[in-house]
Write a protein that binds this DNA or RNA. Structure first.
Length: 805
RNA sequence: GCCGGCGUGGCGGAAUUGGUAGACGCGCUGGACUCAAAAUCCAGUGCCCAUUAGGGCGUGCCGGUUCGACUCCGGCCGCCGGUACCA
């Protein structure tokens, strides 16, 4: 007889709900633990088998921590604004709010069917005005502190659709839907000045317990780079321009300069003869998207402007070119080219026959650029110096002459925060007829997203909100001044940048969260989610958190102390699961056929949490078999407790039990669930081979199993103890260090590093005794006969190695 | 190209202050139970040679350090993830 998962899973899910078993306690005598999952976007597809992997991991930790006497905050919510709902609305004419609500209900049902211990009293939804009031409020605070500003930024404008498209909606310069041409068009956009926090976002990575590769990805994204800014005068002109360089020490080798084609300076300096060529080139560059410009980087192109810059140290003339290998958006949008010591400049110089002047020893600049360190040559006052000294000397020189300075730049750019979409948080701003732009005051928040039956493109590039004139047009009650609401909405990243704070105090009407409560729960102790959010979500959330920290609204510099990324679950054919490949596993089917506990055990047992591993139906069956085996160990065919369970302890399971408590506890803590489960199996196998099962061990074992298989855990606990309480708050089992060691251990005897014999010995045997035993061993004697023993290595309790020749 | 990670049986994976390689599971083989099958329980299972006893080989490849290397060092090969005219 095996257990009926349909019955017991329903029974305990109902029990937990009725008793609010997982309502977070806030007892000041206990420690606080915050275990968080990246909340999902509730897509129409429903839950994927990948979702429960991370959710199960945090759930196991949450359940163990409750047992260990912590207050545990383990919440769930919905990141429910997003493009798919809007596209669905556009296609079908349905309300995205209704569609989203339906999806949420599906997700919630599926999540609950898996037995996660969420405190649903704290459920939040980013599309709920009670929630996004505070998202908007944070935006107004950012405005107040000059961290939100408007700028002209090019967008993907599709005239045929009358709308602006996201990058992922543009394929080869055409709209994904309809294949219409897409152009880059400058539009006024809200930007957030995340660059003001670049240094802190970089430095504070040192303080968090995150996987090193994720930290690296963030470091690369921020892309701090140190060097100097140098000003160049343009010959026969009052104009000048600055360049950023990481190698100011090579200034003597700068033989030409390049401006980004978009640079305003180009108009001023281009000579009459070159005007036509320059204009033609700029037009070409304009057509290319950023992606194309960087993609097609093998073949550099450019045009001479006819103007010359003066090299401030050599005072020689340097031709000024424009080329799209120089990006307007990085540094100053202009470079000094040192072809002898920069690969890109070298390639360009070769193509257009520009001078290559080596200023460093080493390498052969007739063949390729030399980018290493070397003694400076052809460089006047820095000749003979190495990289560091030459750089410092050059910067000192530039600063003294007032033609340059030490400078740090970042790859990180400001956050484009506006979307020309309907389904998002409205930007809480009014543009008044007197030309002023003001944030909506706090008491008028939230600015509610108006309901509409027609979500259609405005045709102007503005969001569909522009069509809703009653909503757009406002009048100041006191002064009668007229104004228009901003029709932009926020990107999906907005709501997810602070949701972990709201979980701490989800119903607060007065503020985003009570500081006292934040102090207790923050930072998040464990945050698990997919690696696809390694950069953007985590960087944005850190930025907002630091901003709120500066306003004294949150108590910690960093939001997430420990981060972990679950891996991907692949299809049985080892490929990414997708409908087209027909290898998608639906969690509903698994839960129906094998039960939630089986799914949880299987996903944790597959391998390391962060690995990408293929699904295996046979492996899944094996996990169910293990749970059945556990059930039968304690329960007989009639559903009665087996009389093997006894209060008498014959000690036959003592060592393995204490080892199991130690290993499971430590492995759970380290998120090594596969080896923890393996240890539970080891105990089960040992228990099958012995007569009596001490009650104490049975209870401890069930407690360790329960975080992974909670329904079975509760059911067995009720049967074994007769308790009517949940197992959730029973104190976690402890192990006794002195009982971990067996009296007898197997040692191996080696000759020249090869195992030749084994022996059972008392674990307390001395080194000398062990050595003597080895030397007397018959097999060993055979092997060392006629040889001279050179050395004997004895590792107590492990081995003896005899070196002989 | 650069950065990060990985490479262990038929398969998923264990084992790192250097000390019995292959825990645990899957699969497979045999046995018990059964009229039979399924399920279950028990046993075996890295590869090669050998009837056994036993021997040899073995953690991507080549080399090194060491009494002893999956683990440390040097050099290759392959795979995965991230990222890229970032000056």
């Amino acid at each position: 007889m095996s257990f009926n998962h349909h019955d017991i899973e329903k029974k305990w899910q109902d029990f937990w709900e009725e008793n609010h078993t997982f309502k977070a306690t806030e007892d000041d005598n206990k420690e606080f633990f915050y275990a968080l999952d990246m909340f999902p976007y509730p897509s129409g597809q429903g839950l994927h088998v990948g979702h429960p992997e991370g959710y199960t991991a945090t759930d196991i930790i949450s359940r163990m921590k409750r047992s260990q006497g912590y207050n545990v905050l383990h919440p769930m919510g919905w990141d429910a604004f997003g493009l798919p709902a809007e596209q669905y609305a556009l296609d079908t004419g349905n309300d995205p709010a209704e569609f989203t609500e339906k999806n949420i209900q599906t997700f919630k049902r599926q999540i609950n069917s898996l037995g996660f211990s969420y405190d649903w009293d704290r459920e939040i939804n980013t599309t709920d005005p009670k929630y996004y009031k505070w998202t908007q409020w944070i935006f107004t605070k950012l405005m107040e502190h000059d961290l939100a500003y408007q700028a002209e930024v090019p967008v993907n404008w599709c005239p045929a659709l009358g709308t602006v498209l996201a990058n992922e909606e543009v394929i080869d310069g055409k709209s994904e839907r309809g294949g219409h041409p897409v152009y880059r068009k400058p539009m006024k956009q809200w930007m957030l000045k995340i660059t003001a926090y670049a240094d802190r976002l970089l430095e504070d990575l040192e303080d968090v317990d995150w996987p090193e590769h994720i930290k690296d990805m963030q470091r690369n994204w921020i892309g701090k780079s140190e060097g100097a800014e140098v000003t160049f005068d343009v010959k026969d002109s009052s104009a000048s321009f600055s360049v950023f360089t990481t190698r100011p020490d090579t200034l003597f080798g700068a033989t030409y300069a390049v401006l980004a084609p978009e640079s305003d300076l180009v108009d001023k300096i281009t000579s009459a003869e070159q005007k036509e060529a320059v204009e033609a080139y700029r037009k070409e560059a304009d057509k290319k998207s950023d992606l194309e410009r960087t993609d097609l980087n093998k073949n550099k192109t450019g045009v001479f402007t006819g103007a010359y810059a003066i090299n401030p140290v050599t005072e020689e003339e340097m031709p000024i070119w424009i080329a799209d290998y120089v990006l307007a958006s990085y540094g100053t949008g202009a470079i000094m080219a040192v072809p002898a010591h920069d690969e890109r400049d070298y390639e360009f110089a070769q193509k257009y026959d520009l001078e290559v002047r080596p200023v460093l020893e080493g390498g052969d600049t007739t063949k390729e650029a030399f980018v290493g360190d070397g003694k400076h040559i052809n460089s006047d006052f820095i000749n003979g110096m190495g990289l560091e000294e030459a750089t410092d000397t050059m910067i000192a020189f530039l600063e003294e002459k007032n033609i340059g300075e030490r400078k740090t730049t970042y790859r990180l750019r400001d956050w484009l925060f506006a979307r020309q979409r309907y389904w998002g948080e409205p930007i809480p701003v009014i543009h008044w007829e007197d030309g002023t732009t003001k944030a909506v005051p706090e008491e008028e928040l939230p600015v509610i997203l108006p309901k509409t039956t027609e979500i259609k493109p405005s045709g102007t590039g503005e969001s569909p909100l522009a069509n809703i004139t009653d909503w757009v047009n406002v009048e100041d009650e006191e002064t009668g001044m007229k104004g228009k609401r901003d029709t932009n909405t926020m990107p999906q990243w907005a709501g997810s940048s602070w949701y972990f704070l709201r979980f701490i105090d989800p119903d607060n009407q007065e503020m985003l969260a009570d500081p006292e409560k934040l102090k207790k729960w923050l930072p998040v102790d464990l945050y698990i989610g997919g690696a696809e959010h390694a950069v953007l979500h985590l960087l944005y959330a850190r930025f907002w958190h630091k901003f709120l920290y500066d306003l004294d609204l949150v108590p910690t510099k960093e939001p997430f102390q420990k981060l972990y990324n679950q891996g991907m679950i692949l299809g049985e054919n080892n490929e990414k699961m997708s409908k087209s490949k027909g290898n998608v596993v639906n969690p509903d089917d698994v839960v129906d056929q094998y039960g939630a506990d089986t799914l949880r055990v299987y996903e944790m047992f597959m391998g390391p949490l962060d690995a990408a591993i293929a699904w295996s139906e046979e492996g899944l069956e094996g996990s169910r078999r293990f749970l059945d085996r556990v059930w039968r160990l304690f329960v007989d065919e009639d559903g009665k407790l087996r009389d093997r369970i006894t209060t008498y302890n014959d000690k036959s399971l003592e060592v393995v039990y204490h080892q199991t408590v130690k290993k499971v506890t430590e492995d759970f803590e380290a998120l090594q669930f596969n080896t923890a489960i393996s240890q539970l199996m080891v105990f089960t196998n040992a228990a099958y081979k012995t007569e009596g099962l001490p009650l104490e061990y049975v209870k401890g074992f069930i407690q360790m199993l329960a975080p992974v298989a909670p329904h079975l855990g509760e059911e067995l606990w009720a049967k074994v103890t007769g308790s009517e309480e949940s197992i959730s708050y029973e104190p976690w089992p402890a192990f006794d260090e002195t009982k971990l060691v067996k009296d007898e251990v197997t040692v191996v005897f080696q000759v020249n590093g090869k195992v030749r014999s084994k022996a059972q010995v008392s674990s307390s045997i001395s080194k000398d005794e062990l050595e003597a035993m080895a030397m007397e061993n018959e097999r060993i004697q055979e092997f060392i006969e006629g040889k001279t023993v050179r050395k004997v290595i004895v590792v107590p309790g492990k081995l003896v190695n005899i070196v002989a020749n």
